[in-house]
């Protein structure tokens, strides 16, 4: 599902985000990406979501070579990759319902179908009663769950999360991780960047450790 072949990313500033990364995630696999800040976790996720493009090597997602993807195809690629951010990236002038509906509206889905899917997503993250509320009146954990609902509402085959529990207390963090494990159980490929090693070690999933833009350790390398 996700494959990196000798991928390097050098920013315009000269900073090398990634240098020579090889990585392969099977369809339906769940993996954690760890490492110090600046190790390249975010860069790696950005390359998958095409927020950045690789300067060397090739990135494959869902059997497509992202290097060869034209600019006008990028939106369609992003519809197949749900992204979850530490800062949630919600629209604060829209209700929870409208925030979650956004990927479906963008894809041109009809109203009835949108309502059905948004309610299903809200149900999954346990926020069914908060659909008419504005994000600002929600707690941090709830806002993150709105962000997760938005990422999964269009049923993308790939979910990426960049420090999804960064601002949450341990109990909420565990709830979020449990949600991810549930999604993985229904076949979604997940890649979650986090520095909370303690939290993820108990889940028994593959852990990829980055250091200075390279894969330093991979508990499931080619396994």
């Amino acid at each position: 599902m996700i494959r990196f072949d000798n991928v390097a990313k050098r920013y315009a500033t000269g900073h090398e985000g990634l240098s020579g990364v090889d990585l392969h995630l099977e369809t339906g696999e769940m993996a954690f990406l760890t490492g110090h800040s600046g190790a390249g976790k975010s860069t790696l996720l950005k390359l998958i979501g095409l927020l950045e493009r690789a300067t060397r090597g090739q990135v494959w997602v869902n059997e497509r070579n992202l290097n060869k993807l034209r600019a006008r195809d990028v939106p369609y690629h992003r519809r197949e990759v749900g992204m979850i951010f530490q800062d949630h990236r919600l629209l604060h002038d829209r209700t929870v319902f409208d925030n979650i509906a956004l990927p479906l509206v963008v894809a041109g889905m009809g109203h009835a179908e949108v309502t059905r899917r948004v309610r299903a997503a809200l149900d999954k993250v346990g926020l069914l009663k908060k659909d008419k509320v504005f994000p600002i009146s929600l707690s941090g954990g709830e806002q993150q769950r709105v962000g997760i609902a938005r990422a999964l509402v269009s049923k993308p085959p790939v979910l990426l999360a960049d420090e999804p529990t960064g601002n949450l207390d341990p109990e909420l963090s565990r709830e979020i991780m449990d949600l991810f494990v549930q999604f993985n159980q229904v076949g979604v490929t997940l890649l979650v960047a986090t520095h909370d090693v303690e939290l993820i070690s108990r889940l028994g999933k593959r852990i990829i450790k980055l250091r200075d833009g390279r894969v330093a350790a991979d508990s499931g390398a080619d396994g």
Partner: peptide, 16 residues
């Protein structure tokens, strides 16, 4: 600005 950014993130085309 931020709305446009988020719409792009969730796969909004330029036309949209």
């Amino acid at each position: 600005h931020s709305e446009i950014e988020i719409v792009k993130l969730v796969g909004g085309t330029d036309a949209f």
